[in-house]
Simulated assay, not measured.
Amino acid sequence: MSSVLFAGLSTIDIQYFVPGFPSSNQKVKCKPPDLLVGGPALNAAVAYAFLAGEANLLSAVGHSPFNPLIQQDLQEHAVHLIDFIVAKSTNPVLATVITSANGDRSILSHHPEDHSFFLDVQALFDQLQPELVLVDGFYPQMTLRVCEEATARNIPVVFDGGSWKPHLESLLPFFDLIICSADFRPPGCNSSGDVIRFFHQHQKSEVAISRGADSILCAGQGHICEIAVEKLKIKDSLGAGDFLHGAFCYYWLKNRNFESALRLASSFASQTCRYEGTRKCFAELKKEQFI
């Protein structure tokens, strides 16, 4: 299968399952939390590797007590890590996830440090020969260099837009395929329609907005449509958006059709919500039903 480079954030997710969200000053007893490896680019790479066999992840992991956990998770899921701060001692981004009985989740997290980037990107692209690149907008220096190299080689760039960040203005020219969350709001945008118009004004014709359990808005091929999300019994929605993006990369490389790839990826992401956490789904789902 085609080589894809996923460039962006890796995290450690500490996930608690509770009957309901606690109110002010309330203490909730629950089972011990799960310690998971996560992050938008990393989870997308895991989903792509599940479907395609392997994936490449460019991220900042560094040296910390969490490093063995991250390395083991990536090895188990056939993701090749390129750590651009491999010799640096630093903790990863830590996220606390509270998941309620209906599968909804709230996340407490923080922005990563903007690590300096000195990796030889030309040599990396020569080695990996990616046919597609996905960026999540974290690590501005790294993302800019990756986008510049991809564009110079006519490699399409998928943008995973979780939230607006000021440095994204300078990256917009490099994005080819855009999938945003409903929380993504560029300056002056107050609705999903505004977001689509914003990207169209920047000459971006293929834009999608995922909205959780609601339909995905898809603007491509000169028209706007809604892609229905499968209604399933949800156990946990953690990572579903990331898995959508990873699966989208797989299906887009197969058919080069924006809307079709989104429909197939949406179905895959919905199925992952039937399982707790972000890794049980890959042990239970049958790859053959998705490829």
Rank of each mutant, 00 (worst) to 15 (best):
237 S>V: 11
269 A>C: 12
228 A>R: 03
259 E>G: 11
286 K>W: 07
243 F>V: 09
288 E>W: 08
252 W>E: 08
245 H>M: 10
243 F>C: 01
234 I>N: 12
259 E>R: 09
248 F>M: 12
233 K>G: 00
228 A>E: 07
260 S>G: 00
245 H>C: 10
223 H>Q: 07
231 K>T: 14
238 L>H: 07
270 S>N: 13
278 T>N: 03
243 F>I: 10
233 K>D: 00
217 L>K: 01
249 C>N: 09
280 K>A: 05
208 A>D: 05
230 E>P: 06
287 K>H: 13
253 L>V: 05
283 A>T: 04
283 A>D: 04
285 L>Q: 15
289 Q>M: 13
276 E>F: 00
224 I>Y: 14
221 Q>W: 09
246 G>M: 02
280 K>D: 09
244 L>P: 05
249 C>L: 07
220 G>I: 04
228 A>V: 12
255 N>A: 03
227 I>M: 14
281 C>S: 02
227 I>L: 15
277 G>N: 02
249 C>Q: 07
219 A>R: 09
286 K>E: 12
280 K>I: 11
220 G>C: 15
209 I>N: 03
255 N>Q: 11
238 L>K: 05
221 Q>E: 03
251 Y>K: 04
218 C>V: 04
226 E>H: 14
284 E>Y: 14
243 F>P: 03
254 K>P: 11
240 A>F: 00
273 C>P: 04
271 Q>R: 11
231 K>Q: 14
267 S>Q: 06
277 G>I: 03
240 A>N: 00
222 G>D: 01
247 A>D: 04
263 R>K: 05
225 C>S: 11
257 N>C: 15
289 Q>K: 14
254 K>R: 05
276 E>H: 15
217 L>W: 12
247 A>T: 09
286 K>H: 01
248 F>C: 10
278 T>V: 08
209 I>C: 02
230 E>I: 02
278 T>M: 08
234 I>K: 13
258 F>A: 02
240 A>H: 00
277 G>L: 01
257 N>Y: 06
213 A>Q: 08
268 F>Y: 05
235 K>L: 03
226 E>F: 15
216 I>S: 02
267 S>T: 12
229 V>S: 07
251 Y>M: 14
252 W>T: 06
219 A>H: 04
254 K>I: 07
283 A>N: 04
284 E>D: 13
248 F>L: 07
241 G>M: 12
287 K>F: 01
208 A>S: 06
250 Y>L: 12
213 A>H: 02
237 S>Y: 08
281 C>A: 06
238 L>D: 08
276 E>M: 10
213 A>R: 10
233 K>P: 00
281 C>F: 05
213 A>M: 12
260 S>H: 11
212 G>N: 07
238 L>C: 13
271 Q>K: 09
254 K>E: 10
254 K>A: 09
268 F>N: 06
223 H>D: 01
288 E>R: 02
233 K>V: 01
